[in-house]
Design a binder for these strands. Structure first.
Length: 437
RNA sequence: GGAGCUGUGGUGUAGCGGCCUAACAUGCCUGCCUGUCACGCAGGAGACCGAGGGUUCAAAUCCCUUCAGCUCCGCCA
């Protein structure tokens, strides 16, 4: 019974102002210890926030108190207009629940962790103790929750597709090969085929939040070997514009959600949320003309390199104030075989990339839904329709026009918060050289 | 896969041929301090300068090799 009543009395730090003048218990970690002779100030943090505790006199146990210990703190809540919370805790007792055995690899109680990213990631678990690092993952959680909520409202069903697959989806990307009993299998680079199959199978609108894997040996501040893909596929569309409009509303919803529930975390990064509204839709050929006119740069193929992405974002920001751009109608040669060719222009496809603050956030398209066209496209790319038999089956049984896209979750969070390196936006990143922790 | 750059106490940096017996900040240890909030003050420990080889009277500093990492390009999200 005693345990139970103690649990009931445990208060989240952000709730403390409601318990003014009451005896409470707080559990969390010590963030900072300031001893001033016969008075000491302890900063205690839990997942909801941070509070200053006051220890008066010089009790024996204070000797053993140190930053990052896991503690249970008993005390009474008193008003304090000096504190952000408006209250502080007059501490009567501290129980150390988890000791600290060695010196910390870097300082956790400064405004920023003053250590290099490599070192920080080597000690990832500890860097996550820093409120600002933890905030990145609260934002990620918010983005994903809003993504789910919005799509559920729109009659989408969340699905889970296999990450161990027999073949690659697009042929181009490098795949991680794995041993699968007596066969060779691969880690999925995209749920593309499966989400189309599930859509056509009758779920009609589907989405998935899951890791995807890319074995490309790139080594940049915006690439990962494993990242979270926010994927969706929608049936019965009348064209690409339906997909773009859905994405506009989705982004609007996500940013409204962050604004409402994540303002504390956003403030830690001085992050300004973008206005979504009507996102400019520019064909690649149009972007080419703009780049030639404004920057004297012309595209060699109907695709954007990263410099072009930066430039067109810069230009549209200047011209329209939009931080987003839909770049549409990429060349047929630069898009996978399941991309719908455009009716009005044989060179291009009903495809798009969403660019945000200079970086590609997602790609998407209307897909080919006609079996004959799809088989034709597969052959045209030099591939064998037979090797796509399980994908192709549903296309022979009433496949509706459809389209979708996939957002890189880490890239979105990275750009929202203005992080320098995408690895900062991953709990335990996997890149070209990192496999632990 | 290609190009460029960086490795100096626990951490972040300075020093870039001799004044280096390697500096500064922070962290750590000891002591003092009843209103701090990056608390303050006094004292202390801690680095053979990534590793190996070479040039030189002299190397943290120049060269080569190697290892580790960063950034950019290609490709992508």
């Amino acid at each position: 019974m005693k345990e139970r009543s103690e649990c009931m009395n445990r208060i989240w730090i952000e709730e403390l102002p409601k318990y003014l003048h009451q005896e409470v218990t707080v559990e969390g970690w010590l963030h900072r210890v300031r001893k001033l002779g016969k008075l000491a100030f302890l900063l205690i943090k839990d997942t909801t926030g941070m509070v200053q505790g006051v220890v008066t006199g010089k009790p024996e146990w204070l000797q053993d108190i140190a930053p990052e210990q896991a503690v249970r703190v008993h005390g009474s809540v008193s008003a304090s207009n000096q504190q952000a919370l408006g209250v502080e805790l007059q501490i009567s007792e501290i129980v150390v629940l988890g000791k600290v055995y060695k010196d910390l690899p870097f300082e956790l109680n400064q405004e920023e962790i003053g250590a290099g990213l490599e070192h920080v990631l080597d000690h990832r678990v500890l860097s996550l103790r820093h409120p600002k690092t933890a905030a990145i993952f609260k934002i990620q959680d918010g983005v994903i929750k809003a993504f789910r909520d919005f799509l559920h409202q729109e009659k989408f069903t969340e699905i889970h597709t296999p990450k161990i697959v027999a073949t690659g989806t697009e042929g181009g990307s490098e795949l991680f090969e794995i041993k699968y009993f007596e066969q060779t299998a691969y880690l999925a680079q995209s749920p593309q085929f499966y989400k189309q199959m599930a859509m056509g199978a009758g779920l009609q609108r589907v989405f998935e939040v899951a890791p995807v894997y890319r074995a490309e040996p790139h080594n940049t501040s915006r690439h990962l070997s494993e990242f979270i893909s926010l994927d969706l596929e929608m049936g019965f569309i009348s064209g690409l514009n339906d997909v773009l409009s859905l994405e506009e509303r989705l982004l609007e919803y996500v940013f409204a959600y962050l604004q409402e529930y994540m303002s504390k975390e956003l403030a830690m990064f001085q992050a300004q949320l973008p206005k979504v509204g009507q996102i400019p839709r520019l064909r690649i050929k149009e972007i080419d003309r703009i780049l030639q006119k404004e920057y004297g740069k012309s595209l060699e193929i109907l695709d954007l390199d990263s410099e072009s992405e930066r430039l067109i974002c810069e230009y549209m920001m200047k011209e329209t104030g939009s931080e987003f751009v839909f770049a549409t109608h990429y060349g047929k040669a630069n898009r996978p075989m399941y991309t719908q060719p455009s009716a009005d222009d044989q060179d291009v496809t009903e495809s798009f990339d969403m660019l945000f603050r200079g970086l590609e956030m997602n790609s998407g398209a209307q897909r080919v839904h006609d079996y004959d066209v799809l088989v034709h496209n597969i052959r045209e790319k030099g591939l064998q329709p037979e090797s796509f038999a399980s994908y192709l089956e549903i296309f022979q049984y009433g496949m509706p026009p459809h389209g979708g896209f996939a957002i890189g979750a880490e890239r979105l969070v990275c750009k929202i918060l203005g992080l320098q390196n995408i690895r900062e936006a991953v709990l335990f990143p996997r890149d070209r050289f990192r496999l632990t922790p």
